[in-house]
Design a protein around this nucleic acid. Sequence first.
DNA 1: GCGCTGACTCCCC
DNA 2: AGGGGAGCCAGCG
Length: 108
Amino acid sequence: MRVQEPSAADLRRERILAVVDSIPRGRVASYGDVAREAGLPGRARLVGRTLRGLGARSGIAWWRVLGAGGVLRVGGAARSEQARRLRREGVEVSARGRVDLAQFGWMG
DNA sequence: GCGCTGACTCCCC
DNA sequence: AGGGGAGCCAGCG
């Protein structure tokens, strides 16, 4: 008995998570950046959907992914958690939920 | 199959 | 600074 072939969706998801996993501690990247790095240019929303479904036990640093320009896009309870996790690793988050990409962006 | 909804991004006013 | 609109497309009812 052979296992089922991973679907295209599964492969996209794995590529996305691999990219997020490669963001160094203390740096951040935008949804669009992650999509491009994963070979999925223009698919920022897919990155957002993928991260949204992650559980705390996933081990993926979802909080390092922000909206374009370094804006926190997450709402509700997860928003404050994201800011807390970022600050814990040295990333400055403004009261408005902004991160300076020149200082903390993945690509510097 | 269809319409709606976004953890998106750009562009224009 | 902020709002509207468009392109995007997978998940869900």
